[in-house]
Design a protein around this nucleic acid. Structure first.
Lengths: 161, 161
DNA sequence: GTACAACACTAAGCATGGTGAGCAATCGGC
DNA sequence: GCCGATTGCTCACCATGCTTAGTGTTGTAC
């Protein structure tokens, strides 16, 4: 595709995301992961969480999260157990296999490095690009789920990575 | 969602794209369009085209394009007719209704303007962001479909918008 | 003129996103 | 203790991407 100049920026964004996802997938498939499951394992690395928490922290709907966790459970990457103290809740934990997969991907040359290379080698500022994306995500998240989606948002920010 | 700092840039890209799509959808739904159909109508504004051309020019698979065109046909936004000169081909044309919808959206305050405002009002350079996205799209497109996907790519670029 | 390759499109099925509806467990006011 | 509201999750279905495997049409080599 050599087009693109005329596209709305929003469509450029979607297309870029799709293409980078494909590049990621090439890497991840070898580790039994997908683009989105990686984020879940990443969140779980900090400790067990409920589905609702995971959904909120990754910006997905709970239904979507539930389905993805079911798939991951079938693949032995996470464990879901009812919380005995509140049986509405599922407590989600990463299994050893899930942790292994995450560590393997993080330790490998990732598509993110590839992306950084693509940008850096062409006069584009990868850090600035990232900062702009983060700004867009935060702004539109706030627009979509005002004040942290009903949950306490204060103190929820992770340490800057 | 107040997270994001730790995410891989690829995931940031996907999330940003999803959020901006939602913002677009809020605008587009009122005009009977969706995010992706807008691009098709935009391409058709230059004149009729075959499904294959549309797919190539928008970076989608032909199957995806076929399904989307079927939906648009059912909604009266495009017309598909077999090319009498080559009955393998479908010639796709925008209907009056499709053109009207496109004109209405283009004439309205679009989510793209919103995006530009969000960036411009915060010290981020919207033009630079766009240029970087375009670079990413072109690089990864080339990676995915080397040399213009088998079709003649030369002279295919649109005038810069 | 007939077989074979290429082309344009369709069909079916998977993945990941969304939505609305609904169910069981829990909590709170009385 | 009971009833209604809330919470946490599931089900069912839609949209838009993808892939693999067709179907029918055209072009070409012999």
């Amino acid at each position: 595709m050599s087009e693109g100049d005329e596209w709305p920026t929003g469509r450029l964004l979607s297309t870029a995301a799709r293409l980078v996802e494909h590049a990621w997938d090439d890497v991840l498939t070898g580790y039994g992961l997908t683009h989105s499951r990686l984020v879940i394992l990443h969140l779980l690395a900090a400790g067990p969480a409920t589905q609702r928490e995971l959904a909120r922290r990754s910006g997905l709907e709970e239904q979507t999260m539930g389905r993805m966790l079911r798939g991951m459970e079938e693949h032995g990457q996470v464990l879901r157990e009812r919380d005995p103290a509140d049986r509405r809740r599922s407590v989600v934990t990463a299994t050893d296999e899930g942790r292994r997969a995450l560590a393997a991907v993080v330790g490998s040359t990732s598509a993110d490095d590839l992306l950084a290379d693509v940008l850096g080698g062409s006069g584009h500022d990868a850090e600035e690009f990232r900062a702009t994306l983060l700004h867009v995500v935060r702004h539109f998240s706030e627009r979509r789920w005002p004040q942290g989606r009903g949950a306490g948002a204060a103190g929820d920010d992770p340490p800057a990575g």
